[in-house]
Amino acid sequence: MTNDALGRLTALLAPDMQATNQAILARMDSPVSLIPQLAAHLVAAGGKRLRPLLTLATAKLCGYQGERHIQLAACVEFIHTATLLHDDVVDESTLRRGYASANAVFGNKASVLVGDFLFARAFQLMVEDGSLDVLRILCAASATIAEGEVLQLTTQNDLSTTEDKYFEVIRGKTAALFAAACEVGGVIAGRSAEDCAALYQFGMDLGMAFQLVDDALDYSAVQAELGKTVGDDFREGKLTYPVLVAIAAAQGEEQEFWTRTIEQGEQTEADLPAALELIKKHDATARTIARAEQFIDSACAALQGFPESEMRTALIDVARYTTARRF
């Protein structure tokens, strides 16, 4: 994500984003001291806050005038952060946004339990909002995220994983929350089912592209820029899109390489550079980005039914620049 596009969207929403950040900090407070300590560690690590920005932006796009979008944006961020805490434990990650991950600092048990706390806070915010439609959308997204993560676990080290199965994984673990974050903006503004469906589609396509780019970066980015260890997906035996492209083109020794390193999990220090070479040889990163751009075209088309405005332009710009980001 380039800073220009995201910066413009953030500037347009500055007062709302400030109120959202205050709501996030207030709801992270707890008399159990480890919770605000771990929460402060997460806040210090920063992050793009893209998902809550989408809730704020789509609400404004739809002409919403109230305050509900602030609490719901905080709710979306809590769901996202809870999943990050759990993911880092599952993946045994040591870096998150360039900082030591929470599980590396506080341990796995604390990370899982504080993740549970944040999920609970998210559901409190949904209930306080009082809309059954909002509750339905965000609850469904939360369940879908969990399903996506479990599905990814079942495809790990499995070379028979198809492109369709991969898309099912990322639709669940990433795109579902993008879609929900956008849809609730239209729901609270009282927009038609057609408009809300268009916002859902925009978020879904944007989320798919975002994850595809993430997966491409794991095989092409500089670690210092990415803020996480490059090659994590390879070491964990994840069947992401760049690997699927390389495996589809593999024959003979290359096929044996992927079988040994991904399916059997037998890796040496020389294997990551070898994997990067194969990814490069088959143009897998560029093909992954190209696939992401197809999703972005669909995302931008979904917003064409909304009147031209500064907010619509900003959302389309953020979508367009998703495939240009380097971290």
Results as ranks from 00 to 15, higher is better:
187 V>D: 04
98 G>N: 08
53 L>P: 06
6 L>D: 09
247 I>P: 04
48 K>S: 07
280 K>D: 14
179 A>T: 02
169 V>H: 03
256 E>W: 11
106 F>M: 02
115 G>C: 06
63 G>K: 05
248 A>D: 14
150 V>D: 06
216 A>M: 09
302 A>K: 07
24 I>C: 11
152 Q>C: 06
191 R>T: 11
177 L>W: 00
73 A>S: 09
99 Y>K: 13
301 A>N: 09
269 E>S: 14
316 I>T: 12
217 L>D: 08
46 G>E: 05
193 A>V: 13
152 Q>W: 04
205 D>N: 11
214 D>E: 06
192 S>E: 04
50 L>I: 14
50 L>D: 04
83 T>E: 05
19 A>D: 15
104 A>C: 05
246 A>M: 07
128 E>R: 14
181 A>P: 00
3 N>T: 15
45 A>T: 04
30 S>K: 11
219 Y>E: 10
69 H>T: 05
42 L>A: 12
293 E>Y: 04
159 L>A: 05
207 G>W: 02
136 R>C: 13
270 A>T: 13
195 D>S: 13
296 I>P: 00
25 L>I: 15
113 L>N: 13
136 R>E: 15
178 F>P: 02
153 L>A: 15
320 R>I: 10
294 Q>F: 07
37 Q>K: 13
130 G>F: 08
316 I>S: 05
73 A>C: 03
309 S>M: 02
273 P>W: 02
61 L>K: 01
196 C>I: 07
170 I>T: 01
202 F>Y: 15
233 D>M: 06
305 G>V: 04
36 P>L: 00
172 G>R: 03
54 L>D: 03
269 E>K: 15
219 Y>N: 07
59 A>H: 00
321 Y>D: 15
206 L>H: 03
60 K>H: 10
225 E>A: 15
153 L>G: 11
47 G>R: 01
198 A>L: 02
74 A>R: 00
222 V>T: 12
175 A>V: 06
250 A>I: 07
92 E>A: 15
115 G>T: 01
34 L>M: 12
115 G>S: 08
94 T>Q: 11
287 R>S: 03
185 G>Y: 00
140 A>G: 14
52 P>T: 11
99 Y>D: 12
68 R>F: 01
312 R>Y: 02
145 I>V: 12
256 E>F: 09
137 I>T: 13
172 G>D: 02
83 T>V: 07
293 E>N: 14
86 H>M: 01
299 A>K: 00
54 L>E: 02
11 A>P: 06
227 G>A: 04
65 Q>W: 00
68 R>I: 07
121 R>M: 04
253 E>L: 12
155 T>R: 12
152 Q>T: 07
126 M>A: 03
99 Y>H: 12
